[in-house]
Design a protein around this nucleic acid. Structure first.
Lengths: 228, 228, 228, 228
DNA sequence: CCCTAAACGAGACGGTACGTCAGGTCTTATA
DNA sequence: TATAAGACCTGACGTACCGTCTCGTTTAGGG
C-alpha cells in the first residue's frame, strides 16, 4: 500500500526529499504520542533530525506542516480504500463506511492527529481552507460519487447537494467525536445512517413543515427502518 | 436584560470578586478582538489589571478561564432568552432558533470566542468536559425541554434521545461553521431543520423503497478495522 | 546584658512581643540553615507563624529585621562575654579574642548570619549604618576599653585612634573571612595580632618610611610564635 | 594590554561576541546607575538588547555575569596601569597605590560595582571563588611583584607571604570602605601604609616591651569555644 | 572532475509567554 | 485594636519555543 508498487523508492533519493519526508513523519509521530502543545516545531525538527530552518523554509506555520503530514499519510495509506462500496443498498454501504470512520476515530493516534488538525484549522482560517481542500474535499468527493449513484437510483432526494448529504452523515459523528457528547460506537453510526437516510428519502409527501406544523401532523410513512 | 435589574451591584464588592470579573471580561474582550494565539494569560492579566498569579490561582489553564468567561457571558446575556418558543410548530420554532444561532455565529466576536473554546476543548479533554458541561449541556437542556413537548405531541420519534435530536439539528450547523464547507445562512438553517424534522418524523409508514433500509432491516457488515 | 537579668520572662507576655520574638528567632534560624536568597520575608513569616504584615509593620526591609535579629541574639548570648581580658599582655589578650572570633566564624550558622548581614549592609547604606551601630560599634567599644589600658601602659602608639587600632586587628580577619583568601585559623589570628602589635608599637624609631628605606633589613627575631 | 592595539575592532565581529559584550557593558552600566536589587537579569537583557536566554546560556547566575563584567572592564581599563611603581621606596610606592584605590572607591560607579560584587561573593561561595580568582588574584599578583623586590631589598620581613602582606595594606581600606567606619581618604591611606610598613619592617630590634609579644613568645591561651 | 552555489544540520540569537515566587499592600475574620 | 491568614498587584525568575540568523558541511549540477 505504498506510493509505488514496484520500484519502491520509499526512501527518498535527494537530501531535500529525505528531509521533507522525515519532517512529515516526525510530525505524525509526535502528534500521535504527545499532547498537542508539545508538538512544537522544535520537537519536530529534533525528531526528524532536521534543522528548524528547513521546516520554516517549506511550511510557513505548524498547521501547514501538519496538514501536509496528514495528506502524506493519507496518500500512503488510502490505497485500496478507493471509495465507498456500492451494493445498491445506500444505508448498508454508508453504515459500513461510518462504522469504519468511528473505528478510526477510536485509534488514539488518529484521534489525536485529527484533533490537532482541527485546532490548527480553528486557529487560522488559511489552514482551515487547506484542511478543507486537502483532507475533507477528497472525502466529500468519495461520498459524492456514491451519492450520484443513489440519486439516479432514486434513493435520495435529488435536490440535496453533495455537501449537504455528506454533512447529514458525517456531521453528527464529527460533532459527537469533538464534543464527546456520548458514546461513539457502531450503534451510533448505524443510527446516524438510519436517520440520515430517512431524512434524505425522496419527498413523496415531504411537507416543508416536516414534523412541525400540523397539529394533525400524522406521519404517513410507515416503515421506520431497522433499529440499530 | 443586563446583569442587574434594580439593585444589583454590577460592580462586585470584594476585591477578589472584582478581580474575577475583570479577568473574565478581559478574556472575552481579547478573544473577540485578537487572533487566539495572542490571547495569552499575560495579555488577559494586563487587560484586566490583574496579576498573573491571580489568574493561575483561580484557573489551572487558559481553557478553564475561557470556559468560565463564556459561561459568565451566557449567564449575564441569556436573561429573557430563557428557551425555545413553543408555538406548536416544531419546525417553525427550531427554524427560528437555528436562524438566530446562525446569526450569532456570524458575529465575529462570538465566532472567535467559540473557536477559541473549541481549540481548548480539543487540546485538553478536561477542558472539553468543562465546555460540554458548562456551555453545551445548558443548550441541550433548553432543546430537550422543547423536544419533550414535541414528543408528547407526537411530532418526533419518541425513541430518539435528546442528545441525538439535538445533534440532528445542531451538528450540521456546527460542522459547516467549523469547517466552512459552505455558506452558513438562514437558508441553510431552514434546510437543516427541514431535513432533521423529516428524519425525526414518527415512523408511521416507513417506505422501504427509499434510502431507508436497503434490502431488509439487517445490520450491514461491519468492516470495523481502520484502513491503516 | 539581657533585657532582664533575674526573672527572665524569656517567653514574652504580650501578643505583639511574642510575634516580635518569633520573627527574630525565625530569621536567625532560617539565615542559619538556608542559602540567603531563600531567607525571604515570606519564609520568615511562615516559620514564625506570623503574618507578613506584622513583619512589615515593624521592619521596613529585610535587612533591618536581620540586624535586629542579630542584636537580639547578641543581647541574649553575650552574657559573660563582658569584654576583653586584661592580663597586661595586650598581644596575649587580643590573640585570645581573635582566636575566639575565628572560631565563631567557623561555625556555619554564625558565618551565614554574618554574611547575610554584610549583604544587607552592602545593598542598603541605611542598613549598613544600622549594622555599624548595633553590631560593630559595641565590639569596637569593647576593644576601645582594652586599648585605653594599653595606651596608658605605653604598649600602643597613643596617637592612633580606637577605630584604627580595631581595624588593624580585625580588618585582616574580616578580609580573609569574606574573600576566603586563605585559611582562617588560630595561626592566622596569632600572626595578625603579632603584626598589628608590631605596627602599633610606640614609635621609638618609627620612621615614616617604615619598611621603606632601610636596606639593612635583617630579620633577627627568632621566635616565630606558635603555629596553628 | 587591550585586546588590540592598532586596528581595534572594538565592536566585535560575530553576533555571539556582540551579544556578550553588550551584556557585560549593560551589566556595568546598570550596576553603576541603579540600586543593586534593580540590576536584574531582565534589566540587563533589556539594556543590552539581548534575550534573557542568551544571558543564562553564558552565565549560570547574575553573580558570574557581574564578575565577568568587572574582569572585562579591568581588561579594557587597565592599560597603563600595568603595575605598582618601583621607586625603591616601598612606602611611597604603596601610598600612591592606596591613594588611587581610595580615589577609585570614591567614584560612585565603581563603589557600587564593587559592592555588588561583594554581595554576590557573599551570597554564593562559587561566585566568591570566581571573584577571588578573576578580580583579586590579579591585584594580589601585582602587589606580589612589588613585594618581591622589596623583600630582596630587605625592606619587608621575608617570612611573610604575599597574601598576608597584601592583606596588611588592603584589608583596612576594604574594611573601612565596606563598613563605613570612618573617612576613607588619602590621609587614611597614608596612615595604613605607614602602619603596615611598620608592621612589616624586618625585626631588627624587636623590643619585647611594646605590643610585641608580651611576656615571652608563649602561646596565649586559646579560649577557642564560641560564646554560643 | 572539479567547483560553485544552494540546501542542509546545528544551534545561537532577540523575543515573548510561560508558570512560579516573593515583595509589599490590603482585606477579612479572629481573639 | 492588633493580629494571623492570605488574596491581591507587581515584577523578576529561569525555561521553552518562536522565527531569524549565522555557521560550517554536504550535495548537486554545470563548466
Amino acid at each position: 500500500m505504498d506510493d509505488d508498487s514496484r520500484d519502491r523508492p520509499s526512501v527518498p533519493t535527494s537530501r531535500s526529499e529525505r528531509a521533507r519526508t522525515a519532517a512529515l513523519e516526525a510530525a505524525l509521530a509526535l502528534a500521535a504520542e504527545l499532547p498537542y502543545p508539545q508538538v512544537t516545531m522544535e520537537a519536530i525538527a529534533a525528531r526528524a533530525g532536521v534543522g528548524k530552518a528547513t521546516l520554516y523554509r517549506r511550511w510557513p506555520r505548524r498547521g501547514s506542516l501538519l496538514v501536509d503530514a496528514v495528506a502524506h499519510r493519507n496518500a500512503h495509506a488510502a490505497v485500496g480504500d478507493g471509495g465507498i462500496p456500492d451494493t445498491g443498498d445506500l444505508a448498508a454501504d454508508l453504515t459500513a463506511v461510518l462504522r469504519s470512520v468511528v473505528d478510526e476515530l477510536a485509534v488514539p493516534a488518529w484521534d489525536a492527529l485529527l484533533r490537532a488538525l482541527c485546532v490548527e484549522a480553528l486557529v487560522d482560517a488559511a489552514v482551515g481552507a487547506q484542511v478543507l481542500e486537502q483532507v475533507f474535499a477528497p472525502q466529500i468527493a468519495v461520498f459524492a460519487h456514491r451519492f450520484a449513484t443513489a440519486r439516479t437510483a432514486g434513493h435520495i432526494d435529488a435536490s440535496v447537494g453533495d455537501v449537504e448529504v455528506f454533512e447529514l452523515f458525517v456531521a453528527p459523528v464529527f460533532h459527537r467525536w469533538q464534543l464527546r457528547t456520548g458514546a461513539l460506537d457502531h450503534a451510533y453510526a448505524d443510527a446516524v445512517v438510519r436517520r440520515a437516510c430517512h431524512a434524505l428519502a425522496p419527498a413523496a409527501t415531504t411537507r416543508s413543515g416536516g414534523a412541525g406544523s400540523g397539529r394533525s401532523g400524522r406521519t404517513p410513512r410507515a416503515t421506520p427502518g431497522p433499529r440499530g
